[in-house]
Amino acid sequence: MQGVVKVNSALNMRSGPGSNYGVIGTLRNNDKVEIIKEVDGWYEIRFNGKVGYASKSYITIVN
């Protein structure tokens, strides 16, 4: 499943599904990501070869 990031500035990509996990990357508005699965309001995603987590509130699913 594919998604597009929708933010005003930047979205942190984290090592786990929560804001208490470390930041491993930064996503920008309109970045395209691969959604692997949903975990407690977060998406596990793949972006630029990295796998991490981002809040699903800021990612819109596209077909």
Rank of each mutant, 00 (worst) to 15 (best):
V7M: 05
T60M: 14
I45P: 00
L11T: 09
K6D: 07
T26I: 14
Y21H: 12
T26M: 09
E44A: 06
N12C: 04
E44K: 07
Q2E: 15
Y58T: 11
V5T: 04
I45H: 00
L11I: 12
Y58D: 13
G18V: 00
R46I: 15
V23A: 07
V62M: 11
R28A: 13
F47I: 12
Y53F: 14
V51A: 13
M1G: 11
G16D: 02
Y43E: 00
V5H: 01
Y43D: 00
N12E: 10
P17W: 01
S9H: 15
Y21I: 02
D40W: 05
N20C: 06
N20M: 12
G49N: 12
M1Y: 12
G52Q: 01
K37A: 14
V62A: 09
L11Y: 06
V39D: 07
N12T: 13
N48I: 07
T60L: 15
R28D: 13
V23N: 05
K37Y: 09
Y43H: 02
E34D: 11
S55E: 11
K56L: 08
F47A: 10
R46H: 15
V5E: 01
T60E: 14
T26V: 12
N30T: 08
W42A: 01
Y21A: 05
Y21G: 03
Y43A: 03
S57G: 09
S57V: 13
S9F: 13
K32R: 10
V23I: 14
I24N: 07
N20Q: 12
S15F: 06
S19K: 10
G22C: 05
E38I: 09
K6A: 13
G41V: 09
N30G: 13
S55M: 12
S9W: 09
V4P: 01
S9K: 10
S55N: 15
D31H: 05
G3R: 02
D31F: 04
R14K: 09
Y43F: 13
V23C: 05
N29L: 08
V51I: 12
V23D: 05
Y53W: 13
G52N: 01
R14M: 15
V51D: 11
V5A: 05
I61G: 06
G25Y: 07
R46P: 07
I61F: 07
S55K: 12
K6T: 13
N63S: 13
E38N: 04
G49L: 07
D31Y: 05
M13T: 04
M1P: 09
D31L: 04
K56A: 11
V51F: 09
I45W: 00
S57D: 15
E34G: 04
K32G: 07
N8F: 07
P17L: 02
I35V: 11
S57P: 12
I61Y: 06
I61L: 12
S15Y: 07
G49F: 06
K56Q: 10
N12A: 09
S15T: 10
I24C: 04
E44L: 07
K37Q: 14
N63M: 08
W42R: 01
R14F: 14
V5K: 01
E38C: 05
N20Y: 12
S9A: 14
L11R: 07
S9M: 10
V62K: 07
P17R: 02
S19D: 15
D40Y: 07
V7C: 05
E38G: 06
M1A: 14
